[in-house]
Amino acid sequence: MSRQALSTPELRKPAPISGRSRSGLAIMLIGAALLAATMLLGSHIGEYYYLATYTILQFVVLGTAWNILGGYGGYVNFGTAGFFAIGCYTTIVLNKMFPMPLFFEMLIAAATAGVVGFGTGYLTLRLRGVFFSIATLALAIVLQTLIVNWSFVGGARGVYVIRPAISGFFVSYVQFLVVLMVGLAIFAVAVAWAVEKSWIGIGLAAIRDDEAAAETSGVPSLRLKLIATTMSGALMGMAGAPFPYYVTYVDPATAFSLAIAVNAIAMPLVGGTATWWGPVVGAILLGSAQQILTVTISSAANLFIVGVLLVVFVTVAPRGVVGIVRGWKRGRK
């Protein structure tokens, strides 16, 4: 069902003014269709398809979040897994201490991850971009070490989470989670779209192209980078918040998995980093491919293929699928 996004022609090129409302509308329509499909097909679809859809949607959110800073601003975050895990463990802690509806847990997770993103950015974004990248890598490992040594959340052994009861509105908790993820994916893509079209996106593009020239053109680069880092981190945290209920058992190795960091980078780069729909395309392509490969071959093999695709795309097609499509369209004219 998520393939709809791929074949919708309106999404191809958001023209400056007329396309603006059209893109927004497209995001809404696709989202509504997805929601309706999930609700209507509820009892007719096997649990496996829900789980697969959830995973793909989760990567739509993570890839989109990564792209706000990485794609628009050119600052590479290697620590997506760290922010994602902040979301997971926020839920776990809240669930143990003050049980509350998942929606509020997600908001608190977003705030926590956003603050960590802001802090990391504030401390390292004045330096050359690579130092920020290395610091994000460091951040993920420091956080993992903290969690491993924190027995309240299960330490290295991990922790079981019990799914709350669900109202009669939904067929199963997993269906509820998928609906929730559809909503979150729409929200994330809408945020990315709004950023891209606003002064923030234009400023970030200038920073990505040449930071010094951007500064001398009046672009407050540190401020914009901090906004982007905070938004990106918060969205990653939000993506992690429902995860404990999805898997029902979380250990640091899963929450901080390198696969999350690699996928969050590979999906925008494979799809194309310049537009909001690049990461969506990348997440759907890579996400579906991984679901199929995990079933047919093995999960290690599918991760291997993600790595290979990432390397192939950055070397041969640095503009991603978006770039290929645009080049192809230009070639036809």
């Binding site: 990485g70 794609g71 050119g74 590479v76 290697f78 971009g129 690579v130 990248s133 990505r208 390198l258 960091a261 690699v262 980078i265 590979a266 780069l269 980093t273 290690a300 093999a301 991760l303 291997f304 993600v306 790595g307 290979v308 990432l310 390397v311 950055v314 070397t315 640095p318």
Partner: peptide, 29 residues
């Protein structure tokens, strides 16, 4: 692929990250 065309920043970093990942998973396989 990178230095020559001046694309070292995002793509270059992602390239090495991908290589890291490939080697690690390759060893696992």
């Amino acid at each position: 692929f990178f230095e020559r065309r001046g694309d070292e920043s995002i793509q270059g970093l992602a390239f090495f990250f991908g290589i890291l990942f490939i080697v690690e998973i390759g060893v696992v396989l």
